[in-house]
Design a protein around this nucleic acid. Structure first.
Lengths: 237, 237
DNA sequence: TGTACATCAGTGAACGCGCGTTCACTGATGTAC
DNA sequence: TGTACATCAGTGAACGCGCGTTCACTGATGTAC
């Protein structure tokens, strides 16, 4: 009884995954906002109503894709970071930030889905979407707090009062990081994000040519602004 | 003869403007990627084919909207900057960058049109679009070069070789600015752009609360990184 | 001042295509006795 | 081992809607003589 139930369930889940996979491939071609159930069904050689066995609505499929994308993005950052020893804070931070971009370039459609223009007519259920989105920042903040605890990090930015007040009032948003690290983390995030967005939508490449070099330089500046230097890391060989 | 010709032309141009105006209003409601000729015609109480007297194709309308948006964005920056005396370089730079965001927030649809996800199925003719896009950077670079000429600016960033090489090889891209100023300008652009993109697509507000304060702080940091201080400006009262 | 003519904005019907979702249904699979 | 039954993936037709673009046309305006 149990066996066949789980067998059926596994089959069901596998088709769900296949649908998402096809959807991702199609988004890559036609853009995220053109995601179409009928087109997915066509590619799977199945009629459109069949998909309703797996997703009650187009919006539910989109939500699933968004959550997957946030998870995969954060996972890519975490894995890249984990390749260095725990004490190599500068390298870990650099690796996480490089992975932020690498994943985006390798999964453009998914990245646009979560960080580009919202899909018209779709509105994400924020109670599902917000926690998924928070993971990337969590990876960064984890490294920053570790570095600070070991005296490796000296952030020196001024922090506006309004930011401080919001931080004090929203304990769930700060992810156990003290204000200065939190602010440094968000600053870093917005900076690499800016470069990446300009790159992905083709505004930056004609201006600087080598966007990879530009991105890496921005990471270096960021590390330096926290007095966190790659050379200070323990031997990473 | 001439009189009536120009009268007709003026009428024609006025309708063209009205079409674009309605298009902008609709983009604001439904998102830029849902721009529809039929919907515009409906709102203008006219049949859809009538619009073909004014734009040969939907894509031409989009291109016109994009060019208008780039022009208006740069104009907003330029006007804001022009409210300060020529020697108040720090204030001028700050004003231009604040206008970058203000215009975006006040004209979200237009901003998304030029800096958000591309409209599926549409591809911009870059020979028209690129010069229009370059104006914003030109405003920034003009202020930077003025400040540098008066010894007010000391950029100290390291510049990757790849960026230098591209700059040397593409004189049309650098807009008469020396490499260090050019690099500083692009860096500033990408930073404020990052904050703005995260804000506009609702990723930043839940994290920092007051995005305006965050944005201003990032501008301050930027000015400081060029040793350009508001207090050094001549009396601006 | 009055008539013939050109211009061109706008119409209405049509083409051929897309979409999400519903509904009653078939037919295979696997379960329970 | 064999039969009755439940489950549920997938079908096919339909609903009601959207879209960009074309085409032959009407009808008003203003020009030229």
């Amino acid at each position: 009884v149990i066996d066949s139930n789980t067998r059926k369930d596994r089959q069901h889940d596998a088709v769900r995954e296949e649908i998402k996979q096809v959807a991702r491939r199609q988004m890559a071609v036609q853009g995220a906002s053109n995601l179409s159930l009928r087109a997915i069904a066509r590619e799977m050689e199945v009629t459109a109503p069949a998909l309703y066995r797996y997703f009650p609505t187009r919006d539910d499929l989109i939500t699933a894709l968004i959550v997957d994308a946030f998870n995969a993005h954060a996972a890519a950052m975490d894995e890249a970071q984990a390749e260095y020893p725990r004490e190599a804070y500068a390298h870990r931070l650099q690796a996480a930030m490089l992975a932020y971009r690498r994943w985006a370039l390798e999964n453009r459609a998914d990245f646009e889905l979560i960080y580009g223009s919202p899909i018209p007519g779709y509105s994400a259920p924020s109670e599902i979407t917000t926690p998924a989105a928070a993971q990337a920042m969590a990876v960064i903040l984890d490294i920053l707090t570790g570095a600070a605890r070991h005296g490796r990090l000296k952030p020196e930015a001024q922090i506006p009062d309004a930011i401080r007040l919001y931080w004090e009032a929203n304990p769930d948003m700060r992810m156990n990081a003290p204000l200065d690290l939190f602010h440094l983390g968000v600053t870093g995030w917005s900076r690499i994000h800016g470069v990446l967005m300009l790159e992905i939508f083709e505004h930056l490449p004609p201006v600087v040519g080598d966007t990879d070099a530009f991105y890496r330089q921005e990471i270096n500046t960021l590390l330096a602004s926290g007095q966190l230097h790659l050379e200070d890391d323990p031997n990473t060989s």
